[in-house]
Design a protein around this nucleic acid. Sequence first.
DNA 1: CTGAAAGCGCTTACAG
DNA 2: CTGAAAGCGCTTACAG
Lengths: 338, 338
Amino acid sequence: MVDVARRAGVSPSTVSYALTGARPISEATRERIQQAMVDMGYRRNVFARGLKSKRSHIIAVLFPKDERGMNLGSMEYIFGASDHAQNRGYHVLLWTSRVDELDDLAGLAQQGLVDGVLLMEVRLEDPRIEVLKTSEVAFAMLGQNVDPGELDYVDTNFDQCARLAVEHLVQQGHRNVGFVHQDAATIESGRGNAIRLRDGMRRAAQDAGIALTALTCQSHLAGGRQAFAELLAADPRTTAVIAFNEQAVPGIMAAAVERGLRIPLDFSVVSIDVPEQAALMMTPTMTTVGPCAAAMGRAAAETLIRRIEGQQLGTPSQKLFDGELVTRSSSGPAPVGR
Amino acid sequence: MVDVARRAGVSPSTVSYALTGARPISEATRERIQQAMVDMGYRRNVFARGLKSKRSHIIAVLFPKDERGMNLGSMEYIFGASDHAQNRGYHVLLWTSRVDELDDLAGLAQQGLVDGVLLMEVRLEDPRIEVLKTSEVAFAMLGQNVDPGELDYVDTNFDQCARLAVEHLVQQGHRNVGFVHQDAATIESGRGNAIRLRDGMRRAAQDAGIALTALTCQSHLAGGRQAFAELLAADPRTTAVIAFNEQAVPGIMAAAVERGLRIPLDFSVVSIDVPEQAALMMTPTMTTVGPCAAAMGRAAAETLIRRIEGQQLGTPSQKLFDGELVTRSSSGPAPVGR
DNA sequence: CTGAAAGCGCTTACAG
DNA sequence: CTGAAAGCGCTTACAG
């Protein structure tokens, strides 16, 4: 920077002010500085900047990868957030520690390395929230805890998604519908979305006046198979299932086919929050209900950055994203006479 | 740090030396310092540290997400690398700019923010390599360019994978096999792995004395359907296909089924480098050949860190990972009499 | 084995 | 509109 200043014939502080924009610089000076920076290939040192300004322009994305396994949906959240952050001049640090590794998190929050933190895979009772609050680092959630209060978040509108999925099936004549969600352990550990979706589903089914059989389900092929068996045992007249369990869905469909049911002629399947890529990987391709994950990631990053930059004082930013129904080949009219 | 020093009754420099381990500290002093740090909840400031030491303990993972779309395999590389980096005391910066956004990359490399860079989605002629070389930042590749020379890399052993896939099918009696790889544009843009795999496949087929029909294929459902049609047109006796195109495989299988072929009774499918999660999402579950992506990610991070820390001088670290065959439900004995 | 001091490259009140 | 100077919190030669 001193070299740039010398070349431009100004003081180092003027160069700095030109860079930060913290005070007006005459057009002529600004141009000389600009030219000098280009000539010398100058790059502002991030550490010196961070040391003085207490701002790193780095945000951390907390994705506890063991929480729910890897899935394309999470990847879309992460890359949506990352994209937007880079557009806004922020770097993204990927943090994959488990939810209960709180010392590591406290270290991250207090080191000053990051200006803010984006929480993914939020639990209803999430111990990370307390840590972040006490360390006074800015943060926003992708998802919600049990009582977000004044906290910023972006989340799926599960109520609306449940309604959309139920209505889709009701319109096609289905009257006995199953809801297969995540495994009991996940629900007990209190991942909020599983619970919010289940409750929304019950309300939607009640309002539509149809029978809903809700089941937990292990997140793998065999789990899906078992859930299908349990479902038909509980209500033999079931003609459709709504699933919130990406890994189990292929098992559900395989079990249906083995029982001689053709999808979608004899049995319909709708998945909540399965990204397009995964939906197209399944046979038949999956009808889905859910919001655009990348857009949610972008919104979460924007919320966090506004909070960091002090443009978001007072009122919290709390957004719910409506889901969209994409009808593919796994759902259709209810079979007659079953 | 001065507060810690005061509390421990030593000079700040002693605290610093205790932290860096750059010179011997008496046991008693070290313990007092340790205690003081714990008492005060001290966290070393990353920026001050980076400013003096020119080391950030941050590595960047360059994943140009538009290159090949999102896929679970890349996610495993990224998280494998991230995991290992965190274990080794490094943070991971996620960088999703396109391959041709070289100014941004030069900025990153010269800012001093990162100690090293991990390149993913490496092309045969990759413009990023020149940028990184001139900016003198340490880097390693997950994949290879056309002539890695003295560069560090970790890559799949495509020759061995091709051989394994071909042998699996030959052992089951298949004599006419198709190879469906990526779309023409991708191959022309010079993603190395597509080309290396195709060449390995040709050699393996030749050595096994079987007929191989190699085709390019658009990376989506319709592309897979079309590839299947082209394949049977080119060689009507084809009884199996090896695919290197995650998004197209469901299309291939759907087309086969529509033609009245049962999988695997009448037609076998093997996929290269499809992660377990995706393999289990398909119906029937997919037989795959490929190395453990997470292990490759970890190895790449380790290679980079050794290079950064100067433990890897002179000879480059170049590793190929062998694939494993996981037989699932999409492949079986060749049908008799076709 | 330990201390005192310089300096990394910026930002930002203070002064004009 | 611009400069001179202090200082952010560390690391590391220099000295003992």
